[in-house]
């Protein structure tokens, strides 16, 4: 029996959706598994895998805080990411504004100079930065974790993103500001910034996540547990022989990931657009 045109379309669409669902499994599955395993006991976790734990072991989420100063580490990550974000917003918008709008000698050269940073991986400069931080006496503090993202390639990327946005703003508004008697700083603060909320939001989102997920720098610069940031802390749930304590590690990972995921789900459109903005520019 031949299918009618609309029936055929329905079949096609169903197949289509089904294949998308299949492709989505390896993207979604790890999150589900992470959360469910975070509730399992140390023995069940090695048993036959089930998505729903047979016994819910809430205790994991208490033990996580006993095993390491996890609350402290959580707080470290939050405040470092906030500091990096605020500093990056401030400095990248200042420099980006100058590069977009001010006609000053050397500006073009400076652009090329800064741009060269975009292609140098952090791994290249981490060794000298290690000695620099040692010399400054800030090893095992959060200073390097704040300074390096702000002034490294990520900061340069943010500067360019801001610059691209400022370039496209109507210039006459700033001229009006000048005629009204605003200083350069006044124009930047009272006119350019209020009109650049989308770009500022994009830089803020990307920068926060960049700092939040940073791993190499904490690994190199931090040594005491109470100074750890989340990614470093997560990798540290091991028994004395270095084997992972899965139930704790996955519970802790869930605690670290789920809040970000919730924010992501609420603001997914804005967050995805922010990444698109930064990517298109590169």
């Amino acid at each position: 029996m031949a299918l009618s045109q609309p029936q055929l379309a329905t079949v096609k669409r169903t197949c289509w959706m089904l294949s998308l669902v299949v492709v989505a499994i390896p993207f979604l599955f790890p999150f589900l598994w992470m959360i469910s395993s975070g509730f399992k006991g140390p023995t069940e976790i090695f048993g036959e895998p089930t998505l729903i734990p047979r016994t819910w072991r809430w205790q994991n989420f208490v033990e996580v805080f006993d095993y390491q100063p996890f609350a402290r580490q959580y707080f470290n990550s939050i405040y470092i990411a906030c500091a990096v974000t605020v500093l990056t917003l401030l400095l990248s918008s200042l420099a980006g504004y100058a590069l977009a709008r001010m006609r000053f000698a050397g500006a073009a050269l400076l652009m090329v100079f800064l741009m060269s940073a975009l292609m140098v991986p952090e791994e290249v400069t981490i060794v000298p930065n290690f000695f620099l931080m040692k010399w400054l006496g800030v090893m095992d503090t959060h200073v390097p974790l704040i300074l390096l993202p702000v002034f490294g390639p990520h900061g340069v990327m943010a500067t360019f993103l801001m610059r691209q946005y400022f370039v496209a703003l109507p210039k006459e508004l700033e001229d009006a500001g000048k005629m009204d008697g605003l200083s350069r700083v006044g124009i930047w603060w009272k006119i350019a910034l209020p009109m650049s909320r989308p770009a500022l939001a994009a830089v803020a989102i990307i920068t926060f996540l960049f700092s939040w997920n940073l791993f190499l720098e904490p690994l190199v610069f931090l040594s005491s547990l109470e100074n750890f940031t989340l990614p470093l802390a997560l990798s540290n749930f091991t028994d004395p022989y270095g084997a992972p304590l899965w139930h704790l590690q996955l519970a802790a990972t869930s605690l670290a990931v789920v809040p970000i995921l919730i924010v992501y789900l609420i603001a997914q459109r804005q967050i995805i657009e922010s990444f698109a903005m930064s990517g298109v520019k590169g």
């Binding site: 979604l28 999150f31 598994w33 791993f215 970000i260 997914q268």
Partner: peptide, 20 residues
């Protein structure tokens, strides 16, 4: 949203879960 979710997730978390 699903396909982009791992991008905002920390590489550490992603690696830990997949290792598991």
């Amino acid at each position: 949203t699903i396909f982009f979710a791992p991008v905002v997730t920390s590489a550490v978390a992603w690696a830990i879960v997949w290792k598991f």
